[in-house]
Design a binder for these strands. Structure first.
Lengths: 334, 334
DNA sequence: GTGAAAGCGCTAACAA
DNA sequence: TTGTTAGCGCTTTCAC
């Protein structure tokens, strides 16, 4: 492996000149620059990451802690992850992947100076990782919203707003009996706040505009979906509009409704809360409130970089929910 | 941040003693060790990863290149990834995540000495990454089987054997008209070899024991599954046993068969090739040939570590396919 | 616009 | 069993 000294010698300059050509941190005359660049190419030189980290206190790596359990929605997680990775690359950073169950991982990679910043997914209301993260010297971005952010940056979809929007969208079409088929019980019990926030917004809007509503939880499987539909129809047989906030169950919910004489969109309106590509890929394309997982991952990295480069203070960014029309919601049949 | 010198001073020993306490590379008397360990605890000392990498030529990080596209089976990919990450942790390594589309990524992280080894998923027959990887100084493990491994280690399920096994399992029950619902066309056209190998084994066994068989490709969606079932039934209306090698389509295939009067297992036998948890979680649990994604990820890391620590030569390991009975395959109705 | 040289925090060879 | 010290390959200050 060629070192910076090899390059310097080959180009007939000092090592610092090579370093400055690479970093652009001081002006270099065109001829010198070209000689150095040629030497770099000729030797196939790559700076040694460890040496660079040691001298500069920058690793150009960020940590990403992702929930790689299978019970949660793998598809959405993947979109977060790709958002983070592609965005990181655009800032010349790589991504070190930690799994949720690696308790000591955050401290290990941060204290060991392996990473410049951390992005942590799937934050719960009283997440025990939050105090740990707050004590690190590297900036941390939380995807999700803990009860006490403790000075950390947060980014997420505004699920509270999404709950409001879902109800008002259906109400505006004339629906007065609305169902919410939501997250699995385990997600609610973990106090993963997105589920709670959506439910809160949903209930608040329901109360505000005075429609009737029923919420049922829903396991992420075919049988869970069928079961949830049956519970909903038992509680509210004349429901005309359903909000589904469970990407895995979504197709099974729609099938189960159809099998029970509630075809979408003829007999019942369905509004999904999920990534656009999921809503689009259904046999009947579904109107949805987009869950911009890829974008959230991207924003998380952008926030991390902003804090790194410009020492920006922590902030919370909640992305505005938007309805994308695909024809699965209509005025109810009178 | 405390450094090794701080620890040495605090414990009243030399830096090398601290280093050796940490690495265990030479014997340390109990009292000394304890003083050092106390100093480490008191100061909250963590070795600086970059400094360590610079001095030792070891980063304790491996690279994992994973296909994070959404078209392929996200669930299975996730299991590979968790297998790699958890296994890496058990060897005191972290995982740097690269995405498939990051063409230059492999060379960047390897030449920049960011990683000790690389694991690359989703290898195609003539994968352009193989020659790149063969030129690196770090050991590389391929998950999948290229036409020319070029001295690299490979690990995968023996899909050829799985194809044989699938047919012989059904044939042993008395089936003589067998269908294979396989991968999407795009996967076959990319020459991702697992699809081809399964098909080859399937066809070979079919020819060998002289049963009738039909293969149809299948897109990974509900509509794709329905379409594949219809094509299969059109070609072979009296099919009695079906092998499904497409985890995403699997539930929809079973539903579509049922809707067409072929309920599993009463009227038609279904043998899935997929991870056990997927086969188990179906509304009707399915007998399957297990795709041990987690284990393959683990083995990949173990092979990488073996090559690192013992300079072991490259090898190819094909895991033996096994049928797990769950009652969805029976003798055909006469 | 360029160069010399002092670290950055470790590991491991050499010495005792 | 322990200590001394020369690097590892880079960045950046200081000097010209």
């Amino acid at each position: 492996m060629a070192t910076i000294d090899d390059v310097a010698r080959s180009a007939g300059v000092s090592t610092s000149t090579v370093s400055y050509v690479l970093s652009g941190k001081r002006p270099i005359s065109a001829p010198t620059r070209h000689r150095v660049e040629k030497a770099i190419r000729d030797l196939g030189y790559r700076p040694h990451a460890g040496a660079r980290a040691l001298a500069s206190n920058r690793t150009n790596v960020i940590a990403l802690m992702a929930p790689l359990r299978v019970d949660v929605n793998v598809n959405v997680i993947m979109q977060f992850v790709t958002g983070v990775v592609t965005s990181a690359r655009s800032f010349e950073h790589d991504v070190l992947l930690l799994t949720q169950d690696d308790d000591a991982g955050l401290d290990r990679v941060a204290s060991g100076s392996m990473v410049d910043a951390l992005v942590v997914m799937d934050i719960e209301a009283d997440d025990p990782r939050v105090p740990v993260l707050a004590a690190l010297r590297q900036p941390t971005i939380l995807i999700g919203l803990p009860r006490q952010p403790q000075g950390l940056s947060c980014v997420d979809l505004d699920f509270d707003g999404a709950g409001h929007l879902a109800v008002s969208h259906l109400a505006a079409l004339g629906h007065t009996r609305i169902g919410l088929i939501g997250s699995p019980l385990a997600v609610l019990e973990r106090h993963t706040t997105y589920a709670e926030r959506l439910l809160r917004g949903f209930n608040a809007e329901v109360a505000e505009i005075g429609v009737q509503a029923v919420h049922v939880s829903c396991e992420s499987s075919q049988t869970g979906a069928v079961d949830a539909v049956d519970r909903l129809l038992a509680d509210m047989p004349d429901v005309t509009g359903v909000v589904v906030h469970n990407e895995v169950a979504l197709p099974y919910v729609v099938s189960a409704l159809r099998e029970r004489g509630r075809g979408t969109p003829e007999n019942i309106s369905v509004l999904a809360v999920c990534p656009s590509d999921v809503a689009e890929a259904q046999p009947v394309p579904l109107t949805s409130i987009n869950l911009p997982a890829h974008a959230i991952g991207q924003v998380a990295v952008e926030m991390a970089m902003a804090r790194l480069d410009h020492a920006q203070p922590a902030e919370t960014r909640l992305l505005t929910p938007l309805v994308v029309e695909r024809g699965s919601t209509r005025p109810p049949i009178v």
